[in-house]
Design a protein around this nucleic acid. Sequence first.
DNA 1: TTCTTAATAAGAATATATACTATTAAGGAA
DNA 2: TTCCTTAATAGTATATATTCTTATTAAGAA
Lengths: 148, 148
Amino acid sequence: MKRNTIQRSLTLEAVQKLKNHPTADEVYEEISAEHPTISKGTVYRNLNQLADSGEIRKMEIPSCPDHFDHCCHEHYHIRCLKCGRVFDIDMDYISDLEKSVKNAYGFAIKGYDLVFKGICPDCSQALENRADADAKDSVNNKEKEKCE
Amino acid sequence: MKRNTIQRSLTLEAVQKLKNHPTADEVYEEISAEHPTISKGTVYRNLNQLADSGEIRKMEIPSCPDHFDHCCHEHYHIRCLKCGRVFDIDMDYISDLEKSVKNAYGFAIKGYDLVFKGICPDCSQALENRADADAKDSVNNKEKEKCE
DNA sequence: TTCTTAATAAGAATATATACTATTAAGGAA
DNA sequence: TTCCTTAATAGTATATATTCTTATTAAGAA
């Protein structure tokens, strides 16, 4: 039988508090600030269990660590190619996109992942500012930044 | 200036030969069977360079290692949730999906990643066969399998 | 209160990918 | 052709994300 542990409650609360699609690591940091003994493996396990039970949503995004979302309505996201942050996007949800599939070669389709990609306002601004500076440095810095 | 190295040619040839969206590791295994001294880092670097120059396509898929595709026309893919393999899917390509976005909050949209998910015919068959056997074992085996 | 065992903490292990560094070799110049 | 510059390589180390392992703890039933 499933047990209601303190760690499980803390994990759920942290995701609900951190509204910006936190990664498992960000959830762990949030919790461990108050409860330093919690284990990162526990956070990972509880996040996945909470996602399995539908209490939170697990967002699997290409070339990114998994992000978790407290939000309950289906919506799309956009990932900044430069800083890696993930944001909500405002667009009607396409619930029957699999009907557009002509041939899935025997696959039982369970859904789809759709993530837009682009450059966020912050990074656009930073790029413009740097355009005056050394172009090479700008490229190097850009390449260095990681997906958070 | 860009140099045409043997390793670069081997990498391109391997992707063109392996038509099933190989991962970098699969490309490395293919090449190293004939050329055991090639370095995995070299394969990664050349795959990314070839993708940057448009000679191959890099497929970034959630919860999967990157896959590489020799194919040149835009098309969608489906990932098996059980075995992790990636297959082509037959569906009209939506080139202007970003026009459906109502509000991207200042983002400059550069494109999108769309990947369907489902259960492939092989895994459907395997699940049916196992349904007669112990259900618990079936679930455990399912959880164990990794994205390839 | 006791007991069973699910869940945990801590850290090792794994997977994917990139970075570092001494060495090699591609291709232009002499 | 031979030499030279330096991009690319091999091999190793490192980074990142996540899962696994194992002894211990504690949730909740009896």
